[in-house]
Design a protein around this nucleic acid. Structure first.
Ligand code: ZN
Ligand code: ZN
Ligand code: ZN
Ligand code: ZN
Lengths: 135, 135
DNA sequence: ATAACGGATGTTATATCATAACGCGATGCG
DNA sequence: CGCATCGCGTTATGATATAACATCCGTTAT
């Protein structure tokens, strides 16, 4: 176990993708990332998708299912609750990550009542963020 | 106002798509629907997507974001809670629709606390259904 | 009646999102 | 060395979704 790349350190491509995502205001599609990173040497979709896959496994990036797009985790340091909630502004596109134990627990209960063995969940809210409501 | 197609009745294509979806055990993609309905006269994706769009507006069909696929609503008669939950079995693919007022309310609260004006939400649970757990 | 309109439809082409499959080069290990 | 593993680059293709345009057909206004 030489730790060449066995768990912690990010490769060049992974770092590029994570930095691009972190710098973005909104969720980005894989192709948007590719466009942005073309000058940094990325040339083809698999390079981006592979980096995203790894970053997701590390919990540094989340996929927003309803947008087919990706965001950097806003608190990669601590572990996630079993149910993370994403609030997506339909006006400006910003995505906020919300943790809520109560809802996570309630979802577990509801799943149990339906005789469903829950492994993971995606909760995506659409609406208007505070900034856009104020406008 | 002859009610030619002004709100209630479904057109031929819409009926075909809804029937195919209702008959399906699992969620179906638009292209799967197209394959199934080719013998009934559907020839191109826009015909399916247009029918799906209308059926969704009528509340007869739901889109499962994490699958890029669609299901027939299992209780099209009564109105939906603001937050419908879909439990998706990763073994057999069945999708169950769950209504839960408590979670819907809780989501409203959480959104409010985050200063987010909620318009609609997608909650998708992945795991194992009762039948598959029993196996 | 007939012209104008709106809505559903059919069709072609294209945009957008995602992965399969192959080969290469560096690294670690027997 | 001989071999396995891993990241990487590249090409090609698959899967999902929509733009754009032409047509048809009942309704409605003139
Ligand atoms: Zn996170
Ligand atoms: Zn906003
Ligand atoms: Zn429903
Ligand atoms: Zn199952």
């Amino acid at each position: 176990m030489t730790d060449k790349q066995s768990g912690e350190t990010l490769t060049r491509n992974q770092t590029l993708v994570l930095e691009a995502l972190s710098a973005a205001e909104t969720a980005m599609t894989a192709y948007a990332l590719l466009d942005v990173l073309r000058d940094s040497g990325l040339r083809a979709p698999p390079q981006v998708y592979r980096a995203l896959e790894r970053l997701r496994a590390l919990g540094l990036v989340h996929r927003i299912e309803s947008l087919n797009a990706f965001v950097a985790c806003c608190h990669p340091d601590h572990d996630h609750a079993p149910a993370t909630i994403f609030a997506i502004c339909e006006d400006c596109g910003t995505v906020s990550e919300i943790e809520n134990e109560a809802i996570a627990g309630r979802l577990e209960t509801v799943a149990g009542e339906a005789d469903f063995k829950l492994s993971r969940s995606a909760i995506e809210l659409k609406g208007q963020c505070g900034d856009c409501t104020a406008k």
